[in-house]
Amino acid sequence: MMARVGRRTVRSMAADFGESVAVAALSLSRRFADGATLWCVAPEWSEHARHVAVEFVHPVVMGKRALPAVSVDSADPVAGLRPLVRPGDVVLAISTAACAATAALLLRARAWGATTIWMGVGEVPSTVDRDSGADHVIWAGDGPETDSPALHDGRLVLMYHVLWELTHVCFEHPGLLTADQACDEETCITCSDEGRLGEVIDNDERGMAHVRTARGVELVDTTIIADVSPGDLVLIHAGTAIAEVR
C-alpha cells in the first residue's frame, strides 16, 4: 500500500468566478421571476445539461421552489431550440470555448430575445468571443490544458451547483427581482444606438424580410445588404437590416 505524504492538492476556481456567477444568478432569478424557462445545452457532455435541469426542477433542498429548466439533448441545438425559446427565456450552454454548436446557439438565442449564460472548462474564450458570445461567461479557469481537469474533478458540477444556490438566495430578496429588466445588464442593446440582432424567417424579391428579434417578428427592409436567406442573422436599425452577422 502506497503511503501518501501530506495532503492531496485540489485545484481552485478562476479568481473572477464568484463575481461572474453572482451576476449571472441575479439575472437568472429575475428572468425566472418574470416567467422564464431555463434551457440547458451541453453539446459535448449532455449529462451536465441534464444535471442542471434536475437541480432546478427537483431541488435537493427542502422548501426551495421548483423552477422550469429543461435540458435539450440535440446534435443541432439551434434547430432543437428555435421553436421552444421565447423572448425573456434563458439559455445556458456548458461547453469548451471551441464548441461550434454552442457558439451558433448563443448568437441565435440572443436574436430570439433570450438571456445567455456560457459556462465552461478548459481554455478561456477570447475577449472577442466573450463579448459577442453571451451575456454571462463563467469559466473554471484552468488555462489551456487539453485534458480540462475541471470537467472531471468535480469543479464543473460545483459551478452549476453554485449558480443554483445563488439563484435561490436571490429569491429571498423579492424587491431586487423586479428591477428594470431591460436595463439591468452592463450593456443594454435595447436602449443603445447599436443594431439589434435578428434571425431571418423569410424574405421576398422586393427586399423585405420577416425577422425574428427579441421584440417578436418584424418586417425589415433588406435592400442595403446582399442576399439574405432564412436562418441568416442580421443587425437591424430603424426598420432596416444594416449588416449580416456571421
Partner: peptide
C-alpha cells in the same frame, strides 16, 4: 450589496 453577498457566498462554497 446583494451582489457582494452573493460573490462572498460563492467563494465560501468553492
Amino acid at each position: 450589496s446583494l451582489l457582494v453577498d452573493l460573490g462572498r457566498s460563492a467563494e465560501g462554497k468553492v
